[in-house]
Design a protein around this nucleic acid. Structure first.
Length: 289
DNA sequence: ATCCTATCCTGTAGGC
DNA sequence: TGCCTACAGGATAGGA
């Protein structure tokens, strides 16, 4: 469930905690994540200092001196946990323990092991196959309605599936795709290739608003996601549609529906996201349907 | 090229 | 109470 707001929350926190600190040693579990972590990763990180952070979509980049970047992806259940003092007790599913020179520790925990840890030369980030495949990041490179429309031209997939495709737009996952379409008043079942300009306008406007609100509350926690201080995000209570099947829409009272698209749940309000609507009015405006 | 499905994995919720 | 199954969804390989 970590999507852009969750990863950005983690990035900001790591920027104020680990940047400037030096790695004394790295211990690996030996378990394979999305791909196997080579033992050389621990050896290459030893003695390096964190110099900065970046994020592209759901990928988190921790830059170190010596021209090395530690690329990570949280997958479904991954967490970076920071401990100012090394804990006495261990935790299950910790795949990397980064021991810092001052005694603090940074752990990568991932029960389901869909996550990723990889070292990349800082100057060759553009060549990395995972990063190279990503579309623009909607926070660092916001897309206009015209951009969306151009990217969707000719595609037959639903607008929900379109928003989830990291090659087209990097950072949205299942939660925020549904939330953004609700905010925009667009039916998730509509084909992305035939949306009208007004609908793309509504989507382009909704993306930064929904992401900013989620980021302000440190993201959405259902069960697994935590910040580096092991705190849950607070956006779950603000969700308009996600995981609210059968509950009344907060705006019009219509029961929220759950459907399956591309083997994933989609949640939407049949009242506010009517098929063929032009995008609903801005929040607070008269309903008009 | 584009789209769709199955796969990886574990914790948890629900049924019986 | 306890066992079993289904489900959650990140990315991606491979097939249609």
């Amino acid at each position: 469930m970590p999507e852009l707001p969750e990863v950005e929350t983690v990035r900001r926190m790591l920027a104020t905690t680990v940047v400037g600190r030096t790695i004394r040693a790295v211990r690996l579990s030996g378990a394979a994540l999305r791909e196997r972590i080579p033992g050389s990763l621990a050896r290459r990180l030893r003695g390096l200092r964190f110099t900065g952070t970046d994020r592209h979509g759901k990928y988190l980049l921790l830059h170190l001196d010596a021209g090395v970047t530690l690329l990570s992806h949280l997958g479904m259940s991954g967490r970076w946990l920071f401990f100012p003092v090394a804990p006495q007790a261990g935790l299950p599913h910790v795949h990397a323990r980064v021991q810092l020179a001052d005694g603090a520790e940074l752990w990568f925990q991932d029960p389901r092991r869909f996550g990723l840890l990889r070292l990349v030369a800082t100057t060759r980030l553009g060549d990395d196959r995972a990063l190279a495949a990503l579309g623009p990041d909607p926070v660092t490179a916001p897309l206009s309605a015209a951009d969306f429309r151009a990217r969707a031209h000719g595609t037959r997939v639903s607008v929900k599936s379109f928003l989830l495709d990291q090659r087209r737009l990097a950072g949205l996952g299942n939660i925020y795709a549904s939330e953004i379409l609700f905010r925009a008043g667009v039916d998730p079942r509509r084909r992305a290739g035939v949306l009208r300009p007004a609908e793309w306008e509504a989507i382009a406007a909704a993306v930064p608003v929904v992401l900013a609100e989620a980021l302000e509350r440190m993201g959405t926690t259902f069960s697994t996601y935590r910040t580096i201080w092991n705190e849950p995000g607070q956006f779950a209570e603000r969700l308009a549609v996600y995981d609210r099947a059968g509950e009344p829409c907060r705006r019009c009272g219509t029961p929220i529906r759950r459907i399956v698209q591309g083997q994933r749940s989609t949640f939407f309000c049949p009242g506010c996201q009517a098929r063929g609507s032009r995008g609903r009015p801005a929040r607070g405006a008269p309903m008009g349907t």
